[in-house]
Amino acid sequence: MEHAGIERLLVDRNRCEGYGMCQQAAPDLIHLDDEDEPVIDVAELSAAHKPLANAAVRACPVAALTLSGPTAH
């Protein structure tokens, strides 16, 4: 789906199991903290970030990471 405006990476904390594939795919955008909890480092994604953000989303084995505009829930 196309969203107008800014896109963000969203983590579903109930599904995330801390595999860290997102960090491997997009180390500039997301990293795991000491507890293996993902931390989003770039809140608002620019067009230049999109390919990496998409790669991070695809790399999540449990589909806990999504890309979403500000209007989505």
Binding site: G18, Y19, G20, E35, D36
Partner: peptide
């Protein structure tokens, strides 16, 4: 399961 199997 994940409470014991997750990487953390």
């Amino acid at each position: 399961l994940a409470a014991r199997l997750a990487r953390r």
